[in-house]
Design a protein around this nucleic acid. Sequence first.
DNA 1: AATGAATGAGAATTCATTCAT
DNA 2: AATGAATGAATTCTCATTCAT
Lengths: 187, 187, 187, 187
Amino acid sequence: MPRIATKKNDILHAALALFMKKGIRATTTKDIAMRADISEGTIYRHFESKDELANQVFEKTSRVLYNFLKEKLALFTKPEEQLNCYVRSLFDFARKDHKKYSFLFAAHQTELRRQTRKKTKHIDLLVEIIILGQEQGVFRAVDQHLAATMVLGTITQTIFYLKNGDIKVNFADIVPEVQASCLKILN
Amino acid sequence: MPRIATKKNDILHAALALFMKKGIRATTTKDIAMRADISEGTIYRHFESKDELANQVFEKTSRVLYNFLKEKLALFTKPEEQLNCYVRSLFDFARKDHKKYSFLFAAHQTELRRQTRKKTKHIDLLVEIIILGQEQGVFRAVDQHLAATMVLGTITQTIFYLKNGDIKVNFADIVPEVQASCLKILN
Amino acid sequence: MPRIATKKNDILHAALALFMKKGIRATTTKDIAMRADISEGTIYRHFESKDELANQVFEKTSRVLYNFLKEKLALFTKPEEQLNCYVRSLFDFARKDHKKYSFLFAAHQTELRRQTRKKTKHIDLLVEIIILGQEQGVFRAVDQHLAATMVLGTITQTIFYLKNGDIKVNFADIVPEVQASCLKILN
Amino acid sequence: MPRIATKKNDILHAALALFMKKGIRATTTKDIAMRADISEGTIYRHFESKDELANQVFEKTSRVLYNFLKEKLALFTKPEEQLNCYVRSLFDFARKDHKKYSFLFAAHQTELRRQTRKKTKHIDLLVEIIILGQEQGVFRAVDQHLAATMVLGTITQTIFYLKNGDIKVNFADIVPEVQASCLKILN
DNA sequence: AATGAATGAGAATTCATTCAT
DNA sequence: AATGAATGAATTCTCATTCAT
């Protein structure tokens, strides 16, 4: 996914890396400018404020994940397969795009302006899968948002502890394990 | 749970409330002093630094939850009962002690000094339940930390979305639903 | 010169030691209280303020030096002998009562309230010696304060560099050397 | 001695004046900012900390004196002439560049970070004069650093009391008097 | 007299944002 | 568009002094 290397993109990338590592508040505009190899003033030519920048980083990153998942899910039609795909893809994304994943799911959301926080669209994909599965009678009847939430919690919490090194399980073994658990939640 | 109203406790309470609402970094010592109705200097009579204060808030809150869960779990002996109790108790704690729960599980942990972060002992209680269940052959064989992580993720994510108003389910109906899901993960 | 160990004396001693080592401003009342093994509040029972304490430390120390020199000088009657005695005694005092000497001659005088600064009476003793010497025709005619100043400068500057380790001369050899120089200034 | 009026120079000048008058610790960054007619933040664009600023003020001032003396001394070749020149030049510098002289020789050196304190190079010039004089047999054999120290003490102490108004001697008469004394110390 | 917790007026420093170039 | 020096409000922390006990 090659992007045109504009200053604006440089700033977005630098900001993502730093926000992920240190949190939004702990990252200074000077940090960002230095990492993006531009001057502090330039940030304000492209973004209204540091808050605005943080929001755009979030939205862009959120979109990337959404598109990534959507593309993967398109390869499957059966709900169970889609669910498995969703689980595996989220693990893959977390590995491949470490920074983006961490920024999206780690702590920093409390630091974003409230209005932005809701727009995590990847959960909608999960809701759709569950609705489909319920229509086809393969998933049990349960509030779809509740179910999606539980599934997502299972996945992200696992990835979180995995990253922290708290779980001593072979990575290859984990994905099927989590897939199985998620299926059980819905059956 | 009446506490002796010392200044130190006033500060801890004020800090908890503010850290929970705005995050640690976004909370100023002035905020804390005003809410605790003391002067800023007094904070430094009781805590070496704001960081130290944050750590103590975390540790104290963590201990409260641990003791709460431990007490509830003591009433049961069978693993499945204990699991159900764990789920229900965490929901109860989240309702009853809104601030403490939010601080412990919300994003702010990245803002704490590393060393403190790991000491979330409540997950150990879950691990013990799972071990017991596996010994008695009622839970399947799976890495206990992985299992505990998935269960905890299911619970906390649900509470998170519940608090955000994203799930339109009657509160009374949710606990059994989550209990059922957790049991399934372990069966 | 044993003193009654009152709290007030404890405070004066602690303050002297700390003022000498770190300077007046850099010494906190807490430092003093801790070293004197009393509480901060007690300082204000004996001294109006930290400034007042610093002044009293200075005055007391100044008096000790004055009396020490006066006593030594009383043993001699001839001006040259008294001059030599003055030089040797100042070196002795600097060795014996390291803290007091350093406090009196080191930097901290700028930190004292102006009014106190002038009261360094030890120079008057030197002026008297010079007047006596001039009356007896053994010292040349020169403004007595100017002469005293030059002599004192010669002595204190030497002690200063000696303490700093900048001069590689045997201690025993220095005193006669300085005595000789001072005599020359006056001849 | 016109200087380019950069903010950095403004700060250095303001700091010198204030440090000289009140001491380093007693001078606040706010004082400096106000006197330099800049904002407090600007200080930190040019200096890492107040300590750093104090060190730079000291080093710069020290260099100015060194160069001033060096230039004057270059006009003479005979050791006695150079010594007289050294004495007179130090008096001149103290009059002409009141602030710089006071900062260098007054008490404030204890307030500087240790490492900087030693670098008073002007004394080296004096040591060189004495070595030259000894080689030519016009000064007596004595440790050069000890001799330099005594000479410098004689000069600076005199200037100190002169500034304080303690000596009632015509300024024009003092310099020859001190020159004579210094020569005597070395003969 | 003695204590030591509490105060609150500042201290040094940081940092998002502005603005002249 | 870009720069980076300058700003100044805000932040954490310090410390002489006070005061209830």
